[in-house]
Design a binder for these strands. Structure first.
Lengths: 102, 102
DNA sequence: AATATATATCGAATTATTTGGATATACAAG
DNA sequence: CTTGTATATCCAAATAATTCGATATATATT
């Protein structure tokens, strides 16, 4: 995350309130997604996030894709579900890099 | 900078490489703008920044305006010149807020 | 195999951002 | 008061981002 290109991708990913909101929700999955049928250890599945954003399934999927391309979240596919988790390592590295370069 | 709207404005302002570059240059004015005719204590005047970005005067002016609207820089007008400085207070507050909310 | 569910991708419309040329404004100097 | 310089604003064109419906893909169930 010291690379200029990674920082660019991450800052762009964070430049949308819905994507920042998603990251904030993923900070406390048990608080925001307690109604998930699957264990939260896996992460939060895409459909649960769709429901919360109020946006269409395809739009939310695009936002999640943007977050993943920026490495701000990790995904894990189990059966037909895709679980999302914050990538704390990258998030921290990004915040550190921003503090440095900014 | 605890307000959600301010964070939105700031993240959008940082979502462009040229604007991040300008903020980085302003961190070390004596290093990057040693050829400025006016004292650097005032800040760095817009024209010096134009020259460095390689973009047109009007485009650079728009970028500087975006940074100012986000309160990431302060300006001071002296004669016909406008001097820009980093707003360290807001930058720090933003980084802190980002660390909190993100 | 047929059906149902979860997610991703495609295509097109809408909106936002970036860009530069031209012009306006403000100030300084002659 | 005219001319020159610095910066901002206006305008239009180009590019990028957002959004959604429709469809594709993958998996699960019957």
């Amino acid at each position: 995350m010291t690379d200029s290109n990674e920082i660019d991708t991450a800052t762009k990913a964070l430049a949308h309130p819905v994507r920042r909101q998603i990251l904030a929700w993923l900070k406390e999955p048990e608080r925001w997604f307690s109604d998930q049928a699957h264990p939260l250890d896996y992460g939060v599945c895409a459909g649960m996030i769709d429901k919360k954003t109020g946006l269409s399934q395809s739009t939310t999927s695009a936002h999640l894709s943007t977050l993943q391309k920026a490495n701000l979240v990790t995904t894990r596919k189990v059966g037909q579900w895709v679980y999302f988790k914050r990538n704390e390592e990258t998030i921290k590295a990004f915040l550190d890099a921003l503090e440095q370069t900014l």
